[in-house]
Design a protein around this nucleic acid. Structure first.
Lengths: 113, 113
DNA sequence: CGGCATCCGTTATGATACTG
DNA sequence: CAGTATCATAACGGATGCCG
């Protein structure tokens, strides 16, 4: 279902606002976006999401897991591996974020800061 | 150009992060999203974006204008009308936001809070 | 490797009241 | 109608160090 583009009502806007509050937190979207290729390890997220601190990454991963966008998988190898894999809902959300990423590449890929 | 979905690199993630920092601020996305139908007045945004305060709305509109997503138009009627109209870049951004809105309608339209 | 706890300044933002 | 000013508070988020 596509929202009527002619005029946005308060309900639609509220839903959108709630959606954005889930991925709009600082780093949340970037972490989720980094999971686009499938499950990744903690350290991979850390390397991919440049500038994020351990603290924030752990925090965001936990929130994304709580919200049902990622699932945490512990693989008892040595050293231990911890994977965060997108759920179906998470994968759909990531897909919905894709156009935003494309917009960024088009409009501010070359800009400083 | 669509980003390679197999594996996100740091650069793409950084661009995405910068993009999200522009619309992920509290209320920013919702205000922009409310402009999907074209130019609207200050009071219309206020009514559409439920829960936002005058202060935040004025702040966000100013930022969205500064970032080149909206243009402010003053129409000297009585009482005065002030319109905020999406620029081409703004319209593209709004369009990129649409899938996110659709995701919200599908996944959390009925949820409380 | 994959975290968590603590400290602590900075920023964000809500309420309220006022203006051209 | 379309904002602006001021204030108090809460939340954010970076740095650092420790742990299984």
């Amino acid at each position: 279902m596509t929202v009527n583009a002619a005029q946005i009502d308060g309900k639609s806007c509220a839903v959108f606002q709630r959606t954005l509050e889930r991925v709009g937190q600082r780093w949340s979207g970037a972490v989720l976006y980094a999971a686009v290729g499938g499950a990744r390890r903690f350290g991979e997220y850390r390397r991919t999401v440049e500038g994020i601190s351990d603290r924030m990454l752990a925090l965001r991963l936990k929130e994304l897991e709580r919200d049902g966008f990622l699932v945490r998988e512990v693989i008892p190898s040595t050293p231990v591996q911890v994977l965060y894999r997108p759920t179906p809902a998470g994968a759909e959300l990531i897909a919905a974020l894709q156009p935003l990423g494309d917009w960024g590449h088009k409009h501010l890929a070359e800009l400083p800061d």
